[in-house]
Amino acid sequence: MTSEGRVPDMKGGFQVPGVKRGFQVFWQPGSDILTGTCHCGAVVRAEDPIGVWNRLLAHPDHGPEAR
């Protein structure tokens, strides 16, 4: 398992249909990295859940490395 984690669920975007404003956080147990996706499409990574939520909730200012 890579420390980057995998993001298999992201292929289909959000799993819950019909959400206009929402966030997704993916975590592969064993990985230290949480991957967050904002409804605007920005993807952020963090090493702890408080960090990932903060960066998502900062929408639209997700920070420099967001893509």
């Binding site: 995998r6 799993q15 956080v25």
Partner: peptide, 16 residues
Amino acid sequence: QTPITTETDEDAGVVY
């Protein structure tokens, strides 16, 4: 050991 995907609906106030 299984991946977990957490999602929120901020308008409806729901956590999945």
